[in-house]
Write a protein that binds this DNA or RNA. Structure first.
Lengths: 217, 217, 217, 217
DNA sequence: AATGAATGAGCCTTCATTCAT
DNA sequence: GATGAATGAAGGCTCATTCAT
C-alpha cells in the first residue's frame, strides 16, 4: 500500500529486502508471537539492516500488519479453493469438499504459519483481527451455512443452521490445536492415512447430525 | 509453606498481599499475556510494592507458574463436577451432563480468565502446558472417551472412539473462541436461553453422529 | 562498643547470634569482598534472621567495621608474638624470628581470612584502613626498623633504615599474593619444608643486603 | 571488527564513543572496583548513552574484559621496555635496568590505573587473572630469573633462583601498595629524587643478597 | 536504499533497611 | 531479642526507533 516501489537490484541472489523481511517476519511472528520477536531477530534472519524494518514498514507494527495482510490473502485463496472443489456437486459433496480442503490446509499445510498466526490473534486480538473476521471468516462461514441449510432443508436464517455450521466449523478448526491433540492422542493426525480418515469421520459424523436436525423438522 | 498462617489484619479490604498478587496476576496475564504484563502493573493492581512479586514468588515467572497451578486446580474441580453431574445416569445422560458443565464453564464462567489463559498456552506453549495436558486434559478426555465408547458400543481403543471423542470435545472447546464467534454470529452465545439451546444442540448433534458410527458397526 | 550486652540464651548449641554473625561475616567478607556479600548471605550462613544484622550492628557497614576491629585485634596478637619470639636474642636472631612468625602467619595461617581482608583493604581502602595503619602496621614496622637499624649500625632515622625495612617487609608481605605466586612457581610455598626454606632464604638474603648497607657506611 | 573505521567528527573533544567508554571505564574500575562502578557512572563520564556499553561491549562484563585486555597490552609493552633497557649490558646492568623500569612504571606511571587494577585482581580474581599470569607475569619473571641465575652462577632450575627472583620481584611490586607505604613512611616515594634512591637501594640490596647466595654455592 | 552507531524509555531483579508483631 | 513481610531505590540490560552518512 504505502510501500515505495523499490528499485530493482542488479545482484541476482539479492531478492528484494522488503520480501525477505516479510518472509522472515511471517515465520518468526507465527513461531514466537509479536512481543517475543525483536526487530533485530527479523533483520538478522532476513540478512537486512536493523533500520530496514522502519524504512520499509514504518515500524514493527507496520511489518506485522503487512504480514497479516499477506495471511488474509492466502486464506482467501483457500476459501476460493474450497468452493471450487465443490462446484458441480450436490450439498453432501460440497460439505465433504469443504472439510477436505480446510482440514488438509490446517493440519498438513505447507503454510502452517498462517494458522499459528490466527491462533495468536484469537488469544491476543489486534485490530487486524477485525479484518480477518470481515474478509475471511464471515465469507467462509456464509458459504458453509448455505451448504448446511440445504442439507437440513430449511432457511439460512434458521437458528439450527447457525449452530450446525458452528459444529462443523469447530471440528475443522479444532485440529488447529493439533500440537496438543497430538500429545493427547497421536493417532488422530499422525500416520499416512490418518488425515483422510479424519476427513471421512468429520463428514460422516456431521452428516448424521445434520440429518437428525432435518428429521426433527 | 505456600500459605503461611496470616496474622489477622484490622483493615477489611487488606487481604494477604500474596493472595492479592495472585488475583491481579491471574486477571492481567489472561487479559494481556505474560510478556505484555509488567510486574509493576501487577503490583499496582494489587496495591503492593514492586518487590513483592520477587519476595513471594521469586520472580515474574514464578508468579505465572503459581497462577497456572491455580488454574489447573480449578479445572480439576470442573472435571470432578462434570463427572458428579453424570453420576447415576445412563451414557446419554452422562454425555449431556458433560457438555452442560463444560459449555457453561467455558462461556459463562465467572472464571473466564482460566480459558483465556489456556488459549494463550495453546498458541504459545510454556512448560506449564505439559502439566495441563497431563493433569487436566488427559483425565477429562479419558472420561469422555468411556462415555463415547459405551454409546458407540465398542472398545475404548477403537479408532472411531478417539475421533468421535475429538468431535465432541472440539465443539465444546470451540466456544472458547466465542469472542470471535460472537462477532460472526451473535445469536450463538448471547441471549437468555442461547446457552441452553447450544448445550442441547451439541448433545443432539453429537448423539446422532455417535449412533451413525454405532450403526456402521 | 555500641553493642548492647545480649542476654544469655538458655539453649545450649545456640551460641550468641551476634557471635555467629561476626564469624560468618568475617569468612564471607574475606572470601568475596564487602560489596559482593549480601546481608541475607551472612544471616543465612549464621542461621539468623534477615534483620539481625541491623539489630546487632546497625547495618551492614557496622558489621564490617566490627569484623575489622576483630581482625586488628588478631594482628596485634601476631605483632606481640613476633616480638616475644625474638626476646633475648641478638639483632640477627630477632630478624629471623620476625620473618619466621609473619611468613608462617601469612601463608599457613589458620586465620587466612585476615590477610584476605587486608589485601582487599589495600586495593579498596575504607576508613578502617587508617585504623589498621595506625594500630598495626606502624607499630610492627617500628619494631622491625629498630632491628634493622641495629644490624646496619646507624640511627633509626637514617633513610637507609626506612628503605631496608621496606625491603624486608615487602618480601614477607609479598607472600600474601601467594595464590598467584603458586600459579607461577608452585615450589615456593608448596611442599612440606618449602615454608621453612623460604624463611631461611628471606633472612639470609636480607642479612646480606643489610650488611652491604652497613659496609657502605 | 574491534575498531570500525570511524567517520571523522567535527567537534574536537568528541573521540569515538567506544574509546571514551574504554578510557572512563579504565579509570573508574581501577578507582572503585568492578562492583562499585555502575554502567551509568561510566556512560556519564564518557558522555555516552546508558545503552552504549551494551552496544559496544555486550554488557558491563564485556567492558571490563576489554579494559583488562588493554591493561595486558600495556604491561607487555612495559616488559619489552624493561628488556630493551638492559640490552647490551651485563647481568648486573640488566638487573638495574629491570628494577628501574618497573619501579618507575609502578609508582610514577601515568598509567597508575593498571596497577590498581592488578591489585584488585589479586584480591578478587576474575577469569582475566589467568590471562595476566600467562601473558604478563610468567614471561616477566622468566626474564628476571635468567638474570638472577647468571648473577648467582647456577642453573635456572635451581630453587635458589626461584626464591631470589621472588625477593627482587616482591620489592618492586611492594611499592604497588604505595598509598599505604606513603602513609607509613612518606620519604620512601615522595620527593624529587626519592624514586631514584629507591631504585638504587633495591638494586644494591638485592645484588648483595644474590652474591651471598652465589658464595654459599 | 542501506548502514550502524546512538538514543532513552522501560523492564525485571536485587538489596539494605524498616516495622509491626 | 527475634521474625519475616514489606519497602523503595538503584542497577544491568533490552528494545524499537532515529539520524548522519
Amino acid at each position: 500500500m504505502s510501500t515505495p516501489a523499490p528499485a530493482l537490484r542488479s545482484s541476482g541472489d539479492d531478492v528484494e529486502t522488503r520480501e525477505r523481511l516479510l518472509e522472515s517476519a511471517a515465520r518468526l511472528f507465527s513461531e514466537r508471537g509479536f512481543a517475543a520477536v525483536t526487530v533485530r531477530d527479523i533483520c538478522a534472519a532476513a540478512h537486512a539492516n536493523v533500520a530496514a524494518v522502519n524504512y520499509h514498514f514504518a515500524g514493527k507494527l507496520g511489518l506485522y500488519q503487512a504480514v497479516m495482510r499477506m495471511a488474509i490473502a492466502r486464506m482467501q485463496d483457500a476459501t476460493a479453493e474450497g468452493q471450487r472443489a465443490g462446484e458441480g456437486l450436490n450439498a453432501e459433496g460440497r460439505l465433504r469438499a469443504y472439510v477436505q480442503v480446510f482440514v488438509t490446509r490446517v493440519v498438513a499445510g505447507q503454510q502452517g504459519w498462517i494458522h499459528q498466526l490466527m491462533m495468536r490473534e484469537l488469544s491476543d486480538p489486534t485490530p487486524a483481527l477485525d479484518l480477518v473476521v470481515a474478509e475471511v471468516l464471515r465469507p467462509r462461514l456464509a458459504y458453509l451455512a448455505a451448504v448446511v441449510a440445504e442439507l437440513i432443508g430449511c432457511d439460512e436464517d434458521d437458528p439450527r443452521v447457525m449452530r450446525a455450521t458452528f459444529s462443523v466449523h469447530a471440528q475443522c478448526v479444532g485440529l488447529m490445536g493439533h500440537p496438543i491433540a497430538r500429545r493427547v492422542n497421536p493417532v488422530l493426525t499422525s500416520g499416512p492415512d490418518a488425515l483422510e480418515a479424519m476427513v471421512d469421520h468429520i463428514t460422516e459424523f456431521s452428516l448424521a447430525g445434520l440429518w437428525a436436525l432435518a428429521r426433527r423438522g
